[in-house]
Amino acid sequence: MDGLQVPLEHVLGLASLLFALGLTGLMVRRNILFVLMSLEVMLNSAALAFVAAGAHWGQPDGQVVFMLVLTVTAAEVSVGLGLVLQIQRRFHTLDIDAATRLRG
């Protein structure tokens, strides 16, 4: 891809759009699986922003942070999916609004 110069503004705009979409999904969906997917989208958009910044400066740091985000995502998904199984077992539904035992 030598010589291809993508405007940074457009890449970051794409990241922002993805983030907004993920946020909408997080706020709208009641199914906990979709909530996790929304989180994935949001993390991915953040990673995109990092990589884009790294590409702007021609430095590897953006990709390093992308790998760290990847690690966080992996850990989060593994625990999150475990929680999905627990919720299904205890409440017999995937409705996240059913798990309100922390109500004040």
Partner: peptide
């Protein structure tokens, strides 16, 4: 808005 930079075009 107003960011004027681009990516370098060189792969890391």
């Amino acid at each position: 808005n107003g960011l004027s930079g681009t990516t370098t075009g060189v792969a890391v």
